[in-house]
Write a protein that binds this DNA or RNA. Structure first.
Lengths: 212, 212
DNA sequence: AGCATAAATAATAA
DNA sequence: TTATTATTTATGCT
């Protein structure tokens, strides 16, 4: 979000220009838009709209239909991108995607109540004449997604070797042994086998089809 | 599939114009295209292409890359769209998606052998000079997998709350009540509890084989 | 700026 | 129930 020249209050979150990984939230809005006065729907308007589109589409789709969406965001705090967090989102690229609103319908759905809460409180503060709005920090901190593990080439080689011998290591026992051998968590190994079978199936040439 | 006016043979299935829900297949082909003579690849050509794109992308992606695909479809039978079925695909929206070729890679994969079979037989018939080609009806009609339901965050919150109080709601009664409360199918709720217990077990470190 | 694939989870099978 | 599959989500990497 860019910073406005005037006395900053709130600023719309807009899709980031396709530029580099700079956070739009960290920027100063050029023209501050009061929450209650805008051409494009505010979050509250949008949210209270019948047949709420948040249920079905991504924010980007909403954008496409309705023009820039006025998702209010605190301004003047100079909040760095890193402080804009939502639920279990973490990591640079995730944050970047969030800020570009390049998110899936599911994410939009998860996001919705968070934004609503934020908006309610922000409007409240504005009514009270407060200058500093809330930071936008959403989601319950509790449930973080497991960090994507990266297997070493050696481990992958070993896993594939195991897989070739037996693509379906039955039960906890065998998987546990492999996990111990490779020093990875059992669950991680289990999931690896699942995914391996999956991709194999998806790419397999089982459809031996040749036109004569 | 509707019948064309001219001496019908085959007509290409093309992506629907972005308009209303009319089936493109249902339209009258202005110039019937013989199976063996076309500018765009036929199914057999496509299928025998090196690095067969059917394995990786949706048909729509194929379209995007290659222009209209000549997937031959019987004409002159007056077959309504509802009779164009493939595997578990049925129902208006599914048919519509199918005809628009707005299908997933998985579906394309399933579709492939069916189309291939159809094409083989159609070509055979044409060689024999038959006018009436086959209807395109594929797949086993029986088994359709339930659509994956997506719980709203609110529902999930409620479910988790219930789960925390009682992870094993005995019998149909309690589950039914929860289902009614949350406006989801009873079966869906039951399965949710099953899976919840399961993942809890999977992620728990109380593994017999492992020292935490 | 996409891809490959790890992780999450709904559905099904055994 | 437990095991596994099918589908979706999302992240680490270039």
């Amino acid at each position: 979000l860019r910073s406005p020249p005037g006395p900053p209050q709130v600023q719309p979150i807009q899709p980031a220009p396709a530029g580099v990984g700079t956070s739009p939230v960290a920027k100063v809005s050029p023209s501050p838009v009061p929450i209650t006065c805008s051409e494009t729907p505010t979050v509250s308007q949008l949210v209270s709209m019948p047949g709420n589109p948040w249920e079905e589409g991504t924010l980007s789709r909403v954008f496409g239909k309705r023009g820039p969406l006025q998702v209010m965001s605190p301004v003047g705090t100079g909040t760095p991108a890193g402080n804009v967090t939502c639920g279990d989102r973490c990591g640079d690229s995730a944050t970047c995607r969030f800020e570009k609103l390049d998110i899936t319908p599911k994410s939009a759905q998860k996001l919705k109540p968070v934004l609503e809460k934020w908006l309610r409180e922000a409007e409240q503060r504005q009514r009270e004449g407060q200058q500093h709005l809330l930071e936008f920090v959403g989601g319950e901190p509790g449930k973080k997604r497991k960090r994507r593990t990266s297997f070493t080439p050696q481990a992958l080689e070993a896993l594939n070797a195991h897989f070739e011998r037996n693509a379906l290591p039955t039960g906890a026992e065998i998987i546990t042994r492999i996990a111990q051998e490779l020093r990875y968590e059992r669950e991680v190994v289990r999931v690896w086998f699942c995914n391996r079978r999956q991709t194999l199936k998806n790419t397999s040439k089982l459809n031996v089809f040749h036109v004569p």
